[in-house]
Structures are given as C-alpha cells and as structure tokens.
Amino acid sequence: MSNVVVQDLSVRAGTKVLISGVSLDIEPGTWCTVIGPNGAGKTTLVETVAGIRRASSGTVSISGRRLEDMSERERARVVALVPQHPEVPAGMTVADYVSLGRTAYHGLLRAPSAHDRAVVDSVLERLSLREFADRDVITLSGGERQRMVLGRALAQSTMVIVLDEPITGLDLRHQIELLDLLKSEVAECGLTVVATLHDLTLAGQFADRLVLLDAGKVVLDAPASEVIRSDELAHSYGMDLRVVDVDGSDVVVPVRSLRH
C-alpha cells in the first residue's frame, strides 16, 4: 500500500516563498483534501506531491521512495495528476487522450500493448466515456471533459492520484457526479487521494482528512469534521462560517461578515 509522506517541504519561486515547512503523512487509502484561501499554496503543494514541481528543500516520498530519486517514467506509474487547467489538444480522440495515461508503461517507441488497451477500455467503461471514444476532445461538454481527464489519470494505474480543483467550472450535479465517481474508484482500488477543493462543504463531505493551508503553512491537519468546525478555518478565510447539519452531513455556510 502506498502512503504519501511529505517532510519539511518548502517551495520557492525566486525569492518568494510559496510553501514552507509542510509535513504530511497520508495513510494508504485515505482521501486527503487540501483547503485554504486563494494564494495559500494549495496548487504548489499538490503539484510538488505529483512530482511536476521541484522542492526547494524537504522531500516527498511515496511508498518509502523519494520522488526525486525516480525517473519521470517510474514516477508516472506511482502518482497521477488531474491538473487544474488541463490542456485539451484539439483533434485528438477521447480514447487516444485516455490512452496517454499509459505512456509510462508502453514507452515512446512502442504501441500500447493488449494490456494497455484493456486498461483504457475498462476506464472508458467505468467512466461512461465509451460512447465518446472516437469523438474529438474539444467537442465534449465541461463535465464530460473533466471525466475524460480523470480517466487519463486512472489509466495510469497508480495507487496515488492527485487532483487540483477537479470540479472547477462544473455545475452542481456534475460536481457531485465526478466526486462520487472518484469515491467509488477509490473504494474499489484502494487509491490514496490528494486533492484541492474550493468548496468547503464538498471538501468536508468527500475527504477523510482535511489539511488547512494558509500563507504556505499548514494551519490544521485533522479529520474532516474537526477542521470544518474549527475556528482556524474561519480565521484563515477571514470571515464568519457556520456549519449546519443537513441530514447528517456538514454544510458550510458563509455569513456576510460584520467585522471590517
């Protein structure tokens, strides 16, 4: 099983500190969502965990191996990323796009193997993408497109999947649909999820654990319900938040602040 360990991680861009001293230990099979206001360093943190951004100091390791010791190809078999603003390469079919997830397995000079194709097939099936398989990626709606990007990440067959704001731009129904889909994949395959989400209610409902990030530092790292109800949360966002219980689920409601 794959646990994700982040040790004393700092990332700087020039002289600007994006995140500093972040340490996390994420158990295998856990869904961990990073929350925090804009500019807190959420994207920086998850991109570093996904290995596409270099740590200035500190380390990220998965299953005991440090990312920096892995080749690009090895890393892509360990951790997959659903980026915040995925590129949509016009002219590519949905099936070909999802197949990109198999790059690390078949390499750059060989065609996908029968096994690679079987994996892609199964992903298309599970994510109800089969009917779009031969369509041009740019013809998909926002929800379909996001499902396709998730499909590419799942096709990487990694135990850790990193998602950066995967539901941005989707309507409510599609937001829930996508997260439900992910949840069932996680349950079925025992995936470890590291995600960022802006919607605190959904963050609380879908994660086992929330990490509250503010100004590049971890403010709180605890089970979801605990973080949702903490004073730190309201403080980080600089506004009043109420948590309402609706049929056993926590709903976070912002209150127009009276403090100026």
């Binding site: 690009e72 190809r73 980026p83 590129e87």
Partner: peptide, 27 residues
C-alpha cells in the same frame, strides 16, 4: 518520425506530459 508518439504526448503541454511520464527535457 519515431518521435511522433512523444510529440503526441507533448500536445498536452510540458507539465502534463511530464506527469504522464515523458522525460520532456530529454525528448
């Protein structure tokens, strides 16, 4: 001609193709 597959991967951009396991710089 042999780089065709790598270039197809790169059509999703440098960061994403790196996350897919493509050694972007070397390619």
């Amino acid at each position: 001609v042999l780089s065709g597959r790598a270039l197809d991967v790169m059509s999703v951009g440098e960061d994403e193709s790196r996350s897919l396991g493509l050694p972007v710089r070397r390619v």
